[in-house]
Design a protein around this nucleic acid. Structure first.
Length: 362
DNA sequence: TAAACGTGGGT
DNA sequence: TACCCAAGTTT
């Protein structure tokens, strides 16, 4: 295995000149760094940047987040996915107010005790915001370290992941001994590991010629870059079809809120149902469920999206109904177009809002 | 331990 | 198009 000194020194030097300027890197505010780390879970930097900017403008500190309305928090998160992250963020802020007197905890165990903070995030915040020598293992670190060390075992094995934590730990410990005035070597080293994975040591066609570790990388030396990391098989995607309908009555639109406990709980959507062999076109649902005449609908096309391992196609229709129309089956709310903007919709249904209302100027 | 949890970027 | 997969955590 390459020596820690080689890896750490080359990465720290590289990071000095190649680190991207990201908004949450402008200072060491633990709150801003924590928010960025939660947003970045399973989400790319490019996607996060505008969300982080808006969030920090609206909820600039722990106190403001703790006191915010949950609807505000979810609206700020709209489109990012994994909405429990946003709710946990607020719960954690309230814990910081109540159990830490509003002072952001620097203790690793205290960080780990916050909802939504696991081993990765606790390590990231304690190293980046507080300069502590805590290891991190995320998707980038898995890729970089398995390649550098030439680890061919499946990353699905808990033994493999344990080894990576151990390696990450010894590396950041080495970094901590390189203390420099005015530099956070632990935070910089951990970020350099992820930065390399995000910009150079890419999943496919990595830019090995630009890599500061190219001379010590075992996977490169052994021609194994294409098969390391050994990630194992993915779950297959399941195709599903839904029908959704935009019902408009005297300038208002019928929407409903998804119940807590189901996927995307608490978010808003237009009435919709999955197409089955019982009702393959959705005509039964439209007629008996919604009280609409399927022949009087106008088609708005299809919206495609994926949620976890479901690949979903939504067939979207629009229907203008008379002032005395009322829904039989489900409780919903009638919202004006301007209100649709203020409510948090699921990503797929936000696309419908744009297509059906905004772009058509109705 | 494995599955659930969302969405969009990139090839 | 059809994948892959992203600064993971929770149950």
């Amino acid at each position: 295995m390459p020596e820690a000194a080689t890896i750490v020194k080359n990465l720290l030097r590289w990071y000095l000149t190649e680190a991207r300027e990201l908004p949450w890197r402008q200072n060491r505010d633990p709150y801003g760094i924590w928010v960025s780390e939660i947003m970045l879970q399973q989400t790319q930097v490019k996607t996060v940047i505008p969300y982080w900017e808006r969030w920090m403008k609206r909820l600039p500190d722990v106190d403001r987040l703790a006191r915010a309305r949950e609807t505000t928090v979810i609206k700020l998160w709209e489109g990012l996915g994994y909405y429990s992250r946003a709710r946990n963020l607020q719960r954690a802020a309230q814990m910081i107010q109540n159990e830490h007197k509003g002072c952001f905890p620097s203790d690793y165990e205290a960080l780990l005790a916050l909802p939504g903070v696991g081993p990765y995030t606790a390590g990231a915040v304690s190293s980046i915001a507080f300069g502590q020598p805590r290891p991190i293992v995320d998707g980038n670190v898995i890729r970089v370290l398995t390649r550098v060390d030439g680890i061919r075992e499946s990353t699905k094995l808990s033994q493999t992941i344990r080894e990576l934590w151990s390696r990450s730990e010894s590396l950041v410990r080495f970094a901590s001994e390189l203390w420099r005035p005015g530099r956070n070597v632990c935070g910089d080293f951990n970020q350099s590991l992820m930065e390399l994975g995000a910009t150079v040591c890419l999943p496919r066609q990595p830019l090995c010629c630009d890599c500061p570790l190219r001379r010590c990388c075992r996977a490169r030396a052994e021609g194994m870059i294409e098969v390391i990391p050994n990630l194992g098989a993915r779950k297959k995607m399941i195709a599903r079809m839904f029908i959704a309908v935009v019902v408009r009555r005297t300038g208002r639109y019928l929407v409903r809120q998804r119940s807590a406990g189901e996927i995307n709980g608490g978010l808003w959507e237009f009435p919709n149902v999955e197409l089955t062999s019982q009702d393959p076109s959705g005509a039964v649902w439209l007629d008996s469920g919604m009280g609409l005449d399927p022949s009087k609908l106008s088609a708005l096309g299809e919206v495609k999206h994926s949620i976890t391992n479901n690949r979903i196609t939504l067939k979207v229709y629009c229907s203008d109904v008379s002032p005395d129309y009322c829904v039989m089956e489900e409780a919903g709310e009638w919202l004006e177009a301007s209100e649709l903007e203020r409510y948090a919709f699921t990503a797929a249904h936000r696309k419908i809002v744009r297509r059906a209302i905004n772009e058509n100027g109705r």
